[in-house]
Design a binder for these strands. Structure first.
Lengths: 202, 202
DNA sequence: AGCCGTATCGTACTCAGGTACTAGGAGAGT
DNA sequence: ACTCTCCTAGTACCTGAGTACGATACGGCT
């Protein structure tokens, strides 16, 4: 396959890692950020956020680069906020420079397909900013029966017992019954503790 | 490799396509949405948004399913809005049911790695919308006095009125008094709603 | 046939949470 | 001085939530 990518980094370890793990890819090394201008348009590039020559490029300079190529920013100390900054400037991806080999391979594959690659935790923040996404923190589900899951979710979302009963077409007494079981299974004392557990707080 | 996934669809074409393209995967077919409860926790599942049995599941039912498994919603007529709805409910991915084989393969790989898969155009929208929403989640603090903030935070963390009173060296009555003011200022009815607001859920 | 898990529902009870109405003292600003 | 907000607190009262101690029915497993 004719797959090649370039990388810009000052860190020998990062370079060696990426070169070795990406077996499907031919990796070229860039000496300076300005050499991005010499690559054919649409090239796949990994840029180490710690590379020294980065500081000489303005914000609009970055926007231009991101338009020209598909660029993945790799940080050795990634954070959601840093990732957000790069993605907002137009980066095609943001990942951990020392991430798992399989993950880095995946990042390259995805970005090469003209998709964007955003890590899990940052993605959740993006979704949370738009709607009310909440996943994870969740082996609580596995302890519950299907019916109990519905009741637990609604109670955790702030619905009253009566509201839950009406929504599910059962009596309030049955809702209470389910909740008692749920509290016992999840080792919580009331619906507020349940909500904290379901929504992954503490 | 021991890679298997399940699919729920009424559409023979979709089933045939996915089965044929995903050579690395063993694909099982599900007959009904309820069979999700019988799969081992954390299973990888593709669900056709047009499947007839979907309508019988409530919103909270979906949330529970999404926490139990890694579920990719596949639509034959995808839209950003529809995608956003599913992802907000907790889906692990949203893609085109008739998408390019290589893309679908990638979706499975990515989701199997416990990442989220969001298409390019939807991702752009998420990134565009991040700025304003993120600031107003901390808005509740502004409306409250310092003392009220302390009480609100503790109540939102699940502490009882008595526990808050003892921690702050005041009577339970005063805690109640603060809470009544807090509820009024933040336009919520009880401590559970307060917790959801403080922790940025709805 | 018997056991067990799940889902449903009844009555009665306790109690934490929340409201209504009220009010005194401390401190800041006019 | 006067007003205003904040923090504090008492008594009385109501209600939703949760528990105790049941019950019936259905389906699967041994």
């Amino acid at each position: 396959m004719n797959r090649s990518a370039s990388i810009l980094t000052d860190d020998e370890t990062v370079f060696a890692r990426i070169r070795s793990l990406a077996t499907d890819w031919a990796i070229h090394r860039l000496g300076d950020i300005q050499t991005l201008n010499e690559l054919p348009a649409g090239s796949l590039v990994i840029v180490d956020t710690a590379a020294s020559s980065l500081s000489r490029t303005s914000e609009s300079g970055w926007r231009a680069f991101f338009q020209l190529h598909r660029i993945v920013m790799a940080s050795s100390q990634p954070s959601d906020d840093e990732g957000l900054r790069w993605l907002n400037l137009g980066a095609s991806g943001y990942c951990h420079a020392y991430g798992a080999p399989a993950t880095l391979q995946q990042v390259l594959d995805v970005v090469a397909s003209d998709e964007l690659w955003v890590g899990r935790s940052l993605m959740k923040r993006l979704l949370a900013g738009i709607g009310k996404h909440r996943t994870d923190s969740g082996n609580w589900v596995q302890a519950l029966t299907p019916r109990e899951r519905e009741v637990a979710q609604m109670a955790a979302d702030g619905e009253s017992n009566l509201a839950i009963a009406e929504a599910l077409g059962i009596t309030e007494r049955t809702v209470k019954s389910h909740l008692t079981t749920i509290f016992e299974k999840l080792a919580v004392s009331d619906r507020l503790q349940l909500a904290l557990k379901v929504h992954g707080i503490r």
